[in-house]
Write a protein that binds this DNA or RNA. Sequence first.
DNA 1: TCCTTTTACGGCGTTCGTAAACATA
DNA 2: TATGTTTACGAACGCCGTAAAAGGA
Lengths: 149, 149
Amino acid sequence: MLEGVTLDQMRMFTAVAEAGSFRSGAARLRRAQSAVSHAIANLEAQLGVALFDRGGHRPVLTPAGRALLEDACAILLKVDLMRARARGVAQGLELELAIVVDTLFPLPLVAAALKDVRDTLPSVRLRLAVEPLVSCLRNTWHFDGPKRG
Amino acid sequence: MLEGVTLDQMRMFTAVAEAGSFRSGAARLRRAQSAVSHAIANLEAQLGVALFDRGGHRPVLTPAGRALLEDACAILLKVDLMRARARGVAQGLELELAIVVDTLFPLPLVAAALKDVRDTLPSVRLRLAVEPLVSCLRNTWHFDGPKRG
DNA sequence: TCCTTTTACGGCGTTCGTAAACATA
DNA sequence: TATGTTTACGAACGCCGTAAAAGGA
């Protein structure tokens, strides 16, 4: 409690912000309201900022809260991405991203995008095909999400 | 311990990776070696990946460890940035970033970078000076890390 | 009066530290 | 043998949940 913003605190924070109240935020995380209340209070103490305005019946984000909410969301997103990459590496299952672009689409944009993907997710194997758009409908296979286990 | 990667674990992880050993990593964080050992073991269990290869006398990063280390560093960086922004907002103290670039450096790049900074950190006041590089050495002040407290 | 948040208190889990056992060059 | 990591065990700290109190509409 002396040095430490926590990922759990951020999860509580985003849940409350999205749900609109401590109660529903707590319900979303299957936690008691008191736990959420404590966590948010601690987070506010850590940051030295009031995240919510408790003036009214429902808590409403302060300007600081709005700004910091973006940070929290971005951080949680990155954590999920890290876990996802770890799962991929752990299972040895090389995720594959197959992309088919029309011959008319500006290739440099695709190249730049793929480079970003490669930098962010080195474990993902990329495959690029440039074809007239009609053939896409015949050649691409159906994709319904990653298989588990 | 069933669901939760922790920021503390990531701090331990990066400290060990940078220091080159559990012992020196622990020393850097003012913690006992056992604490670091436990934390890293838990992190590995959470991610389902071996982060270090304990074959030799010194632990060495596995390929997965190298990849995930980048994620951890990026996350910790974002957390620090969030805390910094919170401090700025809390104290009302407008942080100021003074940048001096050589006259030969392509200005559009600087402009783009400053725009990004402005988008990410609206509370930071930016100041840009374009000067011949020699004057930098006289005008910039010494920087030896963030002050604490 | 109803709904929501905060506070009090007790239990539980996790983490940390000291110290001994183990492995490697 | 010396350096460094893991394991064992005891203690402390923090978090969560139940329940009662306080604040708005």
